[in-house]
Design a protein around this nucleic acid. Structure first.
Lengths: 212, 212
DNA sequence: TAGGTTTACGACTGTGGGGCGAAAACCTCG
DNA sequence: CGAGGTTTTCGCCCCACAGTCGTAAACCTA
């Protein structure tokens, strides 16, 4: 469960109240009930922590099957990556907190690797899909979008480039509106939205494309 | 379990001898034993069908959890993609056969979707990683490699381009040897090998790279 | 030796991302 | 009302690199 908050990519974690790893932080999740889909299960367990209607993207990462991942018993886990747009601030329970992915606390099980795998998956997909919609509000200016990309990618992004690339690919479209001139001065920003809010691949890999 | 055979991308399937889906073709696999890793399990079950030392690449695809995927009982499955180099022809049991991915027979469960997902994953990774090593013999000429890429990608690939791209990225290196002049005539081909036979990402995605 | 075949390689072209600087459109302050 | 500052937008140039093509190289057969 990742979200860009205060200019940083953060992950939702809760503090374990029992062994193993008592007191360590942990990604939300739980056991799969018979007859249930994995996605149903993860949504159900997330619903205990946040309002799942705010979940803009959910994607399977990998299955962890190392028998030593849980010291008490043999247990498999399927890791998911969830994304929440930056403009909502979900209510979370007492034991649950957002943590910057760049400064993770002690994590239970293999959850540290899972969080980092989720971050890496997000970074890769930002470049060749339109997942950005899951990080951004419905409507935004290019510089606001730029800040989200900078936080998620961990490196500078030129606003000029971002606009040009995403427009050329048809990922973004102008709403025609502009931001109301605020008190700071400066040219009012044009507003954009994602043309589609469902995952699409927008970049054929550069090399070895079909001819023509 | 994919391999390029006779210029076509083919998949290893075996014919089910019991219900459900009696008589339908199925991807190899089996149940996970307690304390076992998923990868250990899949290797074990593959060993019953082929010599696993010939397996050049093995990679997790996804978990299938739809409760209707098995009509008899609730069952999860983790799909794997395996690749075998084109220069080996493994012994396979009586009930097991290679099928072109482009002409699949009736498949059991959701195995048709799994096979196609594996093919798509392979196609994508051929473009931005060095997975090619898992399809190719240890040593090969560019035109031989080209045929493998054509079969796997399903579209034409220019030998000139393939050579230039893979050399520039440092994926291939020349062995210094050349193919013995055969009886067909023509200039003898220089021989190449993959510099590394372990999976590496060789292409940063085009857009939104770090500056500099 | 001429002609055919296969491979290798250099040159040209085109697409598209990265960078930069100027222009646009707002503000505030004197 | 104009000067100066700020933020956004846009056009222009550069360059990396994939795609195409034509030619040279290195073999064969007749």
């Amino acid at each position: 469960m990742l979200q860009v908050r205060e200019g940083q990519l953060q992950v939702l974690l809760w503090q374990r109240a029992r062994n193993p790893f008592l007191g360590a932080w942990s990604a939300p999740g739980g056991y799969l009930e018979p007859g249930e889909t994995l996605e149903q299960s993860i949504r159900g367990h997330l619903a205990m922590k946040v309002d799942v209607r705010e979940l803009a993207h959910l994607e399977q990462l990998e299955v962890l099957s190392d028998p030593r991942r849980n010291p008490l018993e043999w247990e498999l886990a399927t890791a998911y990556l969830g994304l929440i747009p930056a403009d909502v601030d979900p209510e979370v329970p007492e034991d649950t907190r957002w943590h910057p992915v760049s400064h993770l606390p002690e994590l239970a099980f293999d959850h540290r690797a899972i969080v980092l795998a989720g971050r890496d998956r997000l970074r890769a997909k930002l470049s060749y899909t339109n997942v950005g919609y899951a990080l951004a509000p419905a409507v935004f200016s290019i510089s606001e979008l730029r800040e989200l990309y900078v936080a998620a990618l961990g490196h500078e992004v030129s606003a000029t480039n971002l606009q040009r690339v995403l427009l050329r690919r048809g990922v973004l479209e102008r709403t025609g509106e502009r931001r109301e001139p605020g008190r700071v001065g400066g040219r009012p920003a044009a507003l954009y939205r994602f043309r589609s809010r469902r995952l699409e691949i927008t970049d054929q890999f550069a090399a070895l494309r079909p001819p023509g």
